[in-house]
Design a protein around this nucleic acid. Structure first.
Length: 706
DNA sequence: GCGATCAGGT
DNA sequence: CACACCTGATCGC
């Protein structure tokens, strides 16, 4: 639930998603979506009075949100004060103080948030910088990178602050199955039931809130059965939804509600009162969409679980998972982040601990706070002494999977790489120009991403150790590099040439280039072949739960208790693995169908959700495009290349945009003073270590010596 | 009578 | 587990 107070530090003249207290004095109002917890005060008498006496104050929202809001008579009084802004259309807004006449202009852009129909994020650009208010959002990994308006030219805009939906910002919500996965699971369950006889019906026990519409649409499209709802006047101008829902009870899929709809637990009675059809009693199953999450080491991502004889839970989430949040924020890399939501067991401090490392300001501060020695020790200590299994892969530790992704990531997300390298190496940006070498910081960031790209594997010891090793490797140079700001010189560059680079070392083992892009789309590419050095060990660990899948009597049925999801390994109904296999065997037609349906959701949800295949190729194009343009940009902007891998920046206003060449990664990181005990790794030693890593061997001990 | 808040429920 | 919402009790205006 949103705890956002309504106002952003940078633009306090506007109020977003809160309409009480101080917000009554705002010069403009913004509503991100139509959920009650974002509408506090929106129909209060105080605000109503203000609107009556004001000609200028407006409420800005997406066209769909406007429609949904005005359908509710309680909000009808807003009618002449709402301005619907088209999504992804930057709009200049004058914020006028009606009392003083004082004026401030901001440009606002609505970006699709994927939370519910009409949900958007607000991007504000003006004198006080660029800030992003996410509202509530669910964006898959990589979606931020695909949002054109988050970019300026080829790189991410310089975003000062992000006001972030942190609902699931906790490592325990590490993974939530993708929208497509969940959809498929529900679809197959519903299909298998309602195709038995015409009297087999399904009740979708949805909350009284917007956000399930794409589920209804997809079920209806796939199965040719409309979904029964209590009312649908709010969709009267949304044919994409309207076509798939009905007020006719005589349908096999219901999402109707009743104040006492637990009557449904009495057999075969629907909330709408239906108990039989043509004199024959109904056979009812209940599917309750609910958020299911998986810690990152839990690999069996069942999206449907049977909870009783005729009751099921289906995975469904309105909010981004922890790994999706991380992907989003680490791509944007704002200077500041402010959580809009406190996760349940969490405190503001705890959330900030998780978010800060993904921001620019923290990196600078961290470098100031921790002297080089301290940083190095800290990184090592945490890696090696942390014996808490649950924490083993949390947060930063998750960053280090020994996948050969660096190059790939670099190609598809240049700004992310550039930023992280910068932030790792720069400190006082306002007084001098900088030379930055690319450092292992980027490696770390890369791994942070790629480990999510196949979270369906490896919980075994061997892999864990590999993880640890990789973490060590990626962290230490990182830590080292943080000391760079005091000692980088350009001649450190030269000596790097004969030192093996992690990515280059393994380059020959990599699959063909085109598969690189797949790694950016984990939800659709999980079933893909080996993309990593460790695909073998992945395979081995996979086998451990294949057997448990087979132990289910069929691909669909098993019982479960009501404990946490993580302990329900054997109650899997439909696993992602199974479904992925299904997709593969069907030549991907299934994926295509679902993707297409998702497209239909687009106008309502405002999501630029293209079919996955399209997304991929699109992303691929963008990636290539970005890369080539990036080069130009560096040349014509305020950055100048100084040698290979060193960039000198003279633009003080945008120092964080330093973009060292990715391929500049070199051993120069090692050649600055280290901790007293530390030694500079010799090329031979690096080669040796890489070899061991490639073989999946544990070299942690040797690392300690290092 | 209305709204805000809280507790308790799904 | 959680979300987003509803209902009902209580309090203050």
């Amino acid at each position: 639930m949103s705890r956002f107070g309504g106002r952003m530090r940078e633009y306090p003249a506007v109020s977003i998603d809160r309409f009480d207290h101080d917000n009554l004095l705002a010069r403009a109002y913004f509503l991100s979506h139509c959920h009650k917890d974002h509408m506090k005060g929106l129909r209060a008498p105080a605000l109503r009075r203000r609107m009556k006496s004001s000609l200028k104050v407006k409420l800005y929202c997406s066209p769909v949100t406007k429609e949904l809001l005005l359908t509710n008579w309680k909000y009808r009084f807003w009618e002449n004060h709402i301005v619907a802004l088209e999504v992804e259309t930057p709009t200049q807004i004058s914020l006028v103080d009606e009392a003083t006449g004082e004026k401030e202009d901001v440009e606002v852009t609505l970006l699709p948030a994927g939370h519910c129909p009409g949900s958007v994020m607000f991007l504000f650009e003006g004198e006080n910088g660029t800030v992003l208010y996410t509202g509530d959002f669910r964006l898959a990994k990589g979606e931020a990178a695909r949002m054109e308006l988050l970019h300026s030219g080829t790189r991410v805009k310089d975003i000062q602050s992000v006001y972030l939906d942190t609902t699931f910002c906790d490592p325990k919500f590490y993974h939530i199955p993708s929208r497509e996965e969940c959809l498929k699971g529900i679809l197959e369950l519903v299909r298998s039931w309602i195709s038995l006889t015409r009297n087999h019906v399904v009740w979708l026990n949805c909350k009284a809130a917007y956000g399930y519409e794409y589920l209804f649409i997809n079920l209806s499209e796939e199965l040719g059965v409309k979904v029964h709802m209590n009312k649908l006047d709010m969709f009267r101008n949304m044919p994409e939804i309207l076509y798939h829902v009905t007020t006719d009870q005589h349908t096999q899929i219901h999402a109707c509600r009743h104040p006492r709809d637990d009557d449904c637990f009495r057999w075969n009675r629907l909330p709408c009162g239906m108990t039989c059809q043509n004199g024959t009693p109904l056979h009812l199953i209940i599917i309750k969409p609910s958020t299911m999450w998986f810690g990152e080491r839990i690999k069996k991502t069942s999206v449907i679980v049977r909870t009783g004889e005729s009751t099921y839970r289906a995975c469904f989430s309105f909010h981004s998972s922890y790994s999706e949040i991380k992907d989003f924020l680490s791509y944007i890399q704002p200077v500041n982040v402010y959580p809009n939501v406190l996760p349940v067991g969490g405190t503001e401090e705890k959330v900030m601990e998780l978010l800060k490392p993904l921001c620019r300001s923290y990196r600078r501060n961290a470098e100031l706070r921790y002297k080089p020695l301290g940083t190095l020790k800290r990184a090592c200590k945490r890696d090696l002494s942390d014996t808490d299994e649950d924490d083993l892969f949390d947060s930063e530790l998750t960053a280090a999977r020994p996948k050969i992704l660096k190059q790939q990531r670099g190609e598809s997300r240049p700004s992310s790489i550039a930023r992280s390298e910068n932030t790792g190496g720069n400190n006082d940006e306002s007084t001098e120009s900088y030379r930055t070498t690319a450092t292992y910081t980027s490696l770390k960031v890369d791994f942070m991403d790629c480990e999510e790209s196949n979270d369906d594997d490896e919980d075994d010891e061997e892999e864990s150790q590999n993880n640890m090793v990789a973490e060590v490797l990626s962290q230490e140079p990182d830590a080292t590099s943080t000391s760079n700001f005091s000692g980088v010189t350009s001649d450190q560059q030269e000596s790097s040439s004969d030192v093996p680079r992690w990515d280059m070392f393994f380059k020959c083992d990599r699959p063909e280039e085109t598969s690189d892009i797949e790694d950016n789309f984990p939800s659709s590419a999980d079933a893909g072949g080996s993309q990593s050095l460790f695909s073998d060990s992945d395979g081995v660990s996979d086998s451990t739960h294949i057997s448990s899948q087979n132990s289910s009597q069929s691909t669909h049925i098993s019982e479960q208790g009501s404990q946490g999801w993580d302990s329900q390994m054997d109650t899997v109904l439909i696993t992602t693995q199974e479904r992925n296999a299904l997709d593969t065997s069907r030549g991907g037609s299934r994926t295509a169908a679902v993707s297409q349906d998702t497209t239909k959701y687009t106008p309502l949800d405002s999501r630029p959700c293209k079919p996955l295949s399209q997304n991929r190729s699109c992303a691929h194009d963008v990636a290539c495009d970005l890369k080539s343009k990036d080069t130009e940009k560096d040349a014509d902007a305020s950055t100048t290349h100084v040698g290979d891998g060193v960039v000198e920046v003279s633009d003080n206003s945008r120092t964080m945009d330093l973009e060292p060449r990715r391929d500049s990664q070199s051993s120069s990181d090692f050649e600055i003073p280290l901790t007293p005990d530390a030694e500079v790794p010799q090329p031979e030693k690096l080669r040796y270590l890489y070899k061991k890593l490639a073989a999946g061997e544990n070299i942690v001990c040797e690392k300690r010596v290092f």
